[in-house]
Design a protein around this nucleic acid. Structure first.
Lengths: 223, 223
DNA sequence: CGACTAATCAAGAGATCGGTTGATTACATG
DNA sequence: CATGTAATCAACCGATCTCTTGATTAGTCG
C-alpha cells in the first residue's frame, strides 16, 4: 500500500512534534526540567539533585537538548545547562494540566503532607499577597546561593540547614511564611515543621520563583 | 541502598507528570489530539483521518484517556471522544514550542509548500484581519459538516471536493482567502492551487478554528 | 432470536527506551 | 608532559511501547 504525499507530510510534522513529547515522557527528564526552572546548573549538580548517576543524567540531558528544550554551555571543565526560551512556560503548563486533570497528583501530595502533619492549605494567592505586604516574616529556606539568584522582595535567607541555630534572629510576635523551590520541593515543609515545634506560627507558601516569574511577581536578585 | 521518603514523593509526583508526557510522546496520538481540536469525533472517523487501523486507533485513544486528556461518551453503538478541559491550550502550546524551537518543522513545511508551488507567506494576523473585515471572499474548504460546527463570521462553505464545480459562485474581482483546519491541514493549500489555476487571486490563511478560539477570535456556528 | 456493526480486548513480534558499567574525550593544573 | 576531573560515549540487558491479527463485548435492527 502506498502512502499519499500529504500523509507523508503530516507524519513528518507530527513526528517532529512528538520529539517534544518524547522528551517530557520520562519522569527523570521532567525532574531535570523542574530543577532547571530554578536556574542554570552543571551536570554534576543536576545528577545529584535528581538522584541520578552522572552518566545517566548526562544522557537524559542530551535527550532534552536534542529536543531543543535546554541549551548547553561549556566553560572550562564544566558544562552548564539552561532552559531554552519558552520552555519554562511550557513546563508549567504541563504541570498545571497534570495537577488539574490527574487526581492522583493531588492524592500523592495530600498523602505526603498529611503524613508530615501539615495539611491546612492556605489560599496560595492570598498568602503570596501577605508575604509581599511585609507584615509577616518571610523566610527563603533554600541554599543561600539560590536565594542570591532570585527571591521574594522582603524575604530573608535562612537555609533549612541553618534554621535551628538561627531561630533567635526571628521575631516571635509575627507570623512566619516559609517558601522554597515550589510546590514539590520539601524544604519549606520541613522548615514549617521545625518552626511550629519551636512555637512559631508558621505556614508554607507553596509556590516558588518559577511560578512567580510566570505570574509577573517581582523577583529580586542579589543578597 | 534505601531511598529517602522525600525522594519517593518526588518520584511519585514526576511519575504522574510523565503520564501526560507519555501520552503526547507518540506522533499518532498527537495527530489524534490535533483532529479532536476540531471537535468531537467517533473512533472510526478518527482512525480514518489519522490513517490508523481501528484497533490501533482505539488503543491510542485509550492511552490518551488514561492520561485524562480526552473523554469518551458512548451513545448507542458509537463512542464519541472529545478533548478534556484545558487540553486544547496545552496542545497548541506544545505545537508552538515545536514550531519555535525545532527548525525541522519549518523545514518540512517549507519543503512541502515549495513543492506545491505555494510559498509566498503572508503575515498571518494581518491576513486574518482582512478575512474578518469583509472585503475579501473567505472560503471554508473543509467538509460542510465541519463548517457547521464553527467557522469565521463571513466565510462561506465550499468544501474542496465541490470547489471546481462551484467556481461560478465566486466574484472574480475580489481576492479569495481560503482556510481549512489549521497550519498542517492540506485542504486550503490544494484549494489555493485550484483557484490560481482558474485565474483567481487566492491566498491561504494558515490558522484554523482551534487557533482562533485560543486567540479569542469570534467563531460562528450553524450554517 | 440471529445477523450485523462499533469498539474493545488479548496476545505476540519487533522496535525503542532506560539505566548500568567501563572506556574515552576534553580541559586544567602542577 | 603527567595527573586529575567533568562530561560524554559505547555497549549491553531488561522493560516498555507500537502495531498487527484474531477473538470478544455491547448495542441495533430486522
Amino acid at each position: 500500500m502506498s502512502t499519499s504525499p500529504s500523509r507523508r507530510f503530516k507524519d513528518d510534522v507530527f513526528e517532529q512534534f512528538a520529539r517534544i513529547g518524547k522528551a517530557v515522557a520520562s519522569p527523570k527528564r521532567l525532574e531535570l526540567l523542574d530543577i532547571l526552572c530554578q536556574g542554570p546548573r552543571t551536570v554534576e549538580v543536576l545528577a545529584d539533585q535528581a538522584s541520578l548517576s552522572l552518566a545517566n543524567a548526562s544522557q537524559h540531558l542530551q535527550v532534552l537538548r536534542a529536543a531543543r528544550l535546554i541549551e548547553a554551555e561549556k566553560s572550562g571543565l564544566f558544562v552548564t545547562y539552561r532552559l531554552a526560551e519558552g520552555v519554562e512556560g511550557f513546563y508549567l503548563g504541563l504541570r498545571h494540566l497534570a495537577e488539574a486533570r490527574l487526581a492522583e497528583v493531588e492524592a500523592t501530595t495530600r498523602a505526603w503532607l498529611e503524613q508530615r502533619g501539615a495539611m491546612e492549605s492556605v489560599d496560595g494567592s492570598e498568602l503570596l499577597q501577605r508575604a509581599l505586604s511585609g507584615d509577616v516574616t518571610v523566610l527563603d529556606v533554600r541554599p543561600a546561593e539560590e536565594y542570591r539568584a532570585g527571591h521574594l522582595p522582603n524575604a530573608r535567607s535562612v537555609p533549612l540547614a541553618e534554621l535551628r541555630s538561627r531561630l533567635g534572629e526571628l521575631p516571635t510576635d509575627r507570623e512566619v511564611v516559609a517558601y522554597c523551590r515550589g510546590p514539590y520541593c520539601v524544604l519549606a515543609i520541613e522548615a514549617v515543621r521545625v518552626l511550629r515545634e519551636e512555637g512559631f506560627s508558621a505556614v508554607r507558601l507553596e509556590t516558588g520563583p518559577p511560578d512567580w516569574r510566570a505570574a509577573g511577581v517581582p523577583v529580586e536578585a542579589g543578597s
